[in-house]
Amino acid sequence: MHSVEKVLAARGLVAKTGPRFSGDRPMVKRNKNWKQIILFLLPVLTLFLLYFVYPLIFVFVTSFTEWNGISAMQFKGLGNYKRLFLSDTFRLSFRNNILWALVLGLVQIPLAAGMAMVLARKPRGWKTFRTIYFLPNVISQVALAMMWLAVYNAEYGMLNGLLNSVGLEQLTHNWLGEYETAFPAVIFQQLFYIGYFMIVILASRMGIPESFYEAAEIDGANVLQQEAHITIPMLRGILVTTMTLAMAFGMRHFESTYLMTNGGPAHQTSVMGIVLYRNLEALRFGEANAIGTILIVTGGVVIALLRWFFGRKASASETVQ
């Protein structure tokens, strides 16, 4: 039969070239469905190559050029990078991204972990709390940003209204318009949306056997001691993973700042993504892609550093969660 011949041919081929390709895995042979496999992989690979592999190479390569999309590219070496790091705006934006990363990693993750620890002890209604704390994560950044613009509004915003009604008029600000308050206000807006990380940490916490806590209870350990000596060490892995992710998110933070302040006042809230977008709009594609490269590299460095620091190997799929 036709297909049997094919199988035999495939096996013959493997036998002939076996030692060269698969020294330690002699069992590997060409799958008889290889044509269909390729067919099934084709759409996903096409999209992946077009939208991930090609753009990555493109961003990297063109970051060394000056190019406006119309006239020919000119090779500039590290010129774009030099110019960026000499510009005050970009340096400030870079610093702001690092602050974002630190705040999300070192403040938001502990807050989320705290909530996971509280809910894991199943207080009344814990499932409802778990569900509603995640709710803001399904609302668009645009709608949330518009809402917070109203909250921070100097004349009739909620925050100033609140301060006025409790007699703290001297504390009212034009939150997003003033030099000192704009950046903290933008960060504050994101900081307490802990739902995503809380759910991920909570799932791991639920995996710790209840008997550990019962044994500690019998030994006289109070709740805080139990959390410190059982939960935190057992959750080390997921805490590192979520911290890594949060910091990576901080390094690429863009959307809500763009929507709320567009980097103002006087670049105080600016982040790298905003500078990238400005360069794109001005058709300075080389410079925009240099920022893109910096975004990708710093994100990767954050992940690698934390992994190295906490001495934990992980595959990409593990970092996803």
Binding site: F48, L50, F52, P55, M251, L280, A288, G300, T319
Partner: peptide, 20 residues
């Protein structure tokens, strides 16, 4: 490799997506 795509900051790819 495919799953590692989630680690790429998508905003870094604005120019190539625009061109594409």
């Amino acid at each position: 490799i495919i799953v590692a795509g989630v680690l790429i900051p998508i905003i870094a790819l604005m120019v190539p997506f625009f061109k594409l």
